[in-house]
């Protein structure tokens, strides 16, 4: 996993973009993680007859290959569907810059190599302006240094260590946790309440 993400940034300032909007329900009836690129933002990108909506930023010639989004407050709120993150990755989104994110969406992101960068409202608004301008839309993100370079300026972002390590190392958390199996067993032995429930079939 790279520690540097560089690419075009697109401005998508709408607040409270929920996971229903990111991945509408009709794309959720699947038992795989694949084939979700077309579903991502489907109702914003396409009309009902499948034509591209010109007003959506990722449909414009200058931003269709953007890999970074600068977004409004509370992006990714709502449903737990990880399909939203899978779809964003399949659409080519590597990083999203915002002020705050829905909690489940935030946790889902790091497990799929999607970097979510938290900045202040003032910085976000500045980056929205840079992303919206053809002269300054090229961003460079350093995950290890926690910096965003845009329009020759450097901005710092917030990211917890767990998230940072996950993005840089890209390790499988399940295997990592199972290295602690002895501690899980010790917890179970010490806490009979934890294991008393056996769900009736």
């Amino acid at each position: 996993m790279a520690t540097i993400i560089s690419g075009k940034a697109a401005a998508f300032a709408q607040p409270n973009v929920d996971t229903d909007v990111i991945m509408p329900k009709r794309f959720l009836k699947t038992i795989t993680r694949e084939g979700l690129a077309d579903g991502t933002f489907a109702d914003l990108r396409f009309t009902e007859s499948g034509e591209k909506r010109p007003e959506f930023v990722l449909n414009s010639a200058d931003w269709r290959d953007a890999s970074i989004l600068v977004v409004g407050d509370n992006f990714g709120c709502g449903s737990s569907r990880e399909h939203a993150v899978w779809g964003l990755r399949q659409l080519g989104v590597d990083a999203i810059i915002g002020t705050d994110f829905g909690g489940i969406f935030y946790d889902n992101a790091r497990k799929n190599g999607l970097a979510l960068l938290i900045v202040s409202k003032a910085v976000r608004n500045k980056l929205l302006a840079f992303a919206g301008d053809l002269e300054t839309l090229q961003f460079n993100i350093d995950i290890a240094a926690k910096t965003i370079k845009a329009a020759t300026q450097i901005f710092e972002f917030e990211m917890g260590q767990t998230c940072q390590t996950a993005l840089i190392e890209g390790k499988d958390e399940t295997f990592d946790t199972l290295k602690l199996a002895h501690k899980i067993r010790a917890f179970e032995s010490a806490n009979p309440n934890a294991t008393r429930l056996i769900v009736n079939k």
């Binding site: 795989t32 260590q161 501690k183 934890a194």
Partner: peptide
């Protein structure tokens, strides 16, 4: 259960529920 590097915790889940649409993968 224990502390993890980076300040997070490993927590034990007493009970877990699944449905047909977020569990297949």
């Amino acid at each position: 259960v224990c502390d993890l590097p980076g300040g997070d915790l490993l927590v034990y889940v007493d009970f877990h529920i699944m449905n047909e649409y977020t569990s297949p993968q």
